[in-house]
Computed example of a mutant assay.
Amino acid sequence: MIAKLFAKYQSIGLITLSLLAGAIMTFIALPVLTRLYSVADFGAYGIALAIVSVLSTVANLRLDQALLVAEDQDKKSLIFEGTVFSTVIAVMSGIVISLILNVEMACAVATGVLANTLLQSVYSYQFAAHKEYFCAGLNIFRSAIVVAVQLSLPFVMQISLVNSYNVSSILMIVAMLLYILKYQLYQVSWHAFKNYQDFIYANTPHALLNSFSHNLPYYVVSHFVGVQAMGFYTIVERTLRVPINLISQTLRQFFIRKFKDADSSQNALKASVLLSLVSLPLFALVFVLPESVYLWIFGSEWVGISTYFQILALGYWAVFCNPPSSAYLIAKRNSQVLFKLQIVELIIKFALFAGLYVLCADKIYMLLAVPVALIIYNFAILYVVWRNKS
């Protein structure tokens, strides 16, 4: 029995452990980082990450997701095509941002977008080939590079958090390009993507809306609450997103691959409910920790950060039911459902932001729109999959 369970879940267990190792590195580094960089630094870093997150999801037109279900003869072509698309979008976005914000932010966004898309393409290619040990190593490599650069550079030069992120992104770009070239994981072609246009026309708009919706609070906080609050929100969001990234970057790929040939959504439903229940105690812990614990971890400069943790934790646990259910829809080439639900979620979030802005004297409580919208959106996906079960 134990041997069967190990064989069944070895893949997901290995990848999860690798991301957990990366998450632990990030979490351990946070108390040091909050003392090396200022709150304003984290505010600017939060803006950069928000822009990178939005652009990274669509820079390669979701061809990294297509790699998980693509025919073997198309995979190397998809890597080449996705790299070209993401390079063009990264350069164009850098030029636009340099005109709107500054060159420092523009460089960080451009390199961050290209690094993310290259990493994800290589990851998806190897994951589709069941090379879990490589994927696990890549997860640890990504976290280690970011943490090592952010921790080491302030000791040798005066540098902002945005610029340190730029350095780590450049290192990852060089590493991924060398790997792609060395093992010839590309094929110059402009035909393969035509067979996966549903990822471009359905999955890409959904991913763009999802990323914009997720990063909308950054813009709301910076505009209505202030740059100081942006630093607080960045730290909290970065901490709570550790388990979210764990499931979105790993479990979804695992379930897409698993449900590619599934006839029924029954297993997707069971896995969604199980993940939601398992995650609930983890996020409930946020509500019992006193403020003093947060100040001990992050430093005395971060008074009031517990309120941010509690507001966001209300809804982040609901995201754990998403990977199996959304993966089932993606594997069945039915991403247009996710796109429609994302539009509804965004409308709800806008309405809640506006209503809370009028009703609440303390504008921080506008962030309550985030957990409410997350709960509605993720359980709506679960409901759609349940209605379509065979």
Rank of each mutant, 00 (worst) to 15 (best):
V286C: 11
L277N: 00
A327T: 01
N245A: 14
S264D: 15
H223E: 08
V242K: 02
F309K: 05
V337Y: 10
Y316H: 06
L289R: 10
S264Y: 12
F254E: 09
P281V: 03
H223G: 04
A207P: 15
F320S: 03
R252Y: 13
N203I: 02
A207I: 07
P290Q: 01
I256N: 09
L285M: 13
Q249N: 09
P323K: 04
T307R: 06
S264H: 13
Q310R: 14
P290N: 02
H214V: 05
S211Y: 06
V286F: 09
G231L: 13
Y294G: 01
S265I: 07
L295N: 03
W317L: 05
I244K: 02
T250M: 06
Y328W: 14
N267H: 14
K260A: 08
S335T: 09
D263G: 15
V225C: 03
A318I: 08
S335P: 11
A313L: 10
V242C: 01
W302D: 09
V303I: 05
G231W: 15
L312Q: 09
L289V: 12
L295R: 13
V225R: 10
I297H: 14
L208P: 04
A229N: 07
L251Q: 00
W296R: 13
G299W: 09
Y201V: 05
W317D: 00
S326G: 09
S335K: 05
L295A: 03
L312N: 05
G315D: 03
L240K: 07
W317F: 10
H206L: 02
Q266D: 01
W302T: 12
S264K: 11
K258W: 02
V286Q: 02
P243Y: 10
W296G: 00
R241V: 00
Q336S: 09
Q310W: 09
K258Q: 10
S306Q: 03
G226C: 01
A271V: 05
L209Q: 06
Q266W: 05
E237T: 14
E237K: 13
N215G: 02
V303S: 04
F224P: 13
R238A: 07
K332L: 07
N245C: 04
A331T: 04
F320E: 04
F232N: 02
A327C: 02
W296V: 05
T307L: 14
S222A: 12
S335C: 10
T204E: 01
N267P: 07
Y233I: 01
F255T: 02
E237L: 15
F212W: 08
I235V: 13
L285Q: 04
S326K: 05
V288R: 00
S213C: 12
V278G: 08
Y201Q: 01
D261L: 06
L275W: 11
A268H: 05
P243F: 12
A202C: 03
Q228V: 06
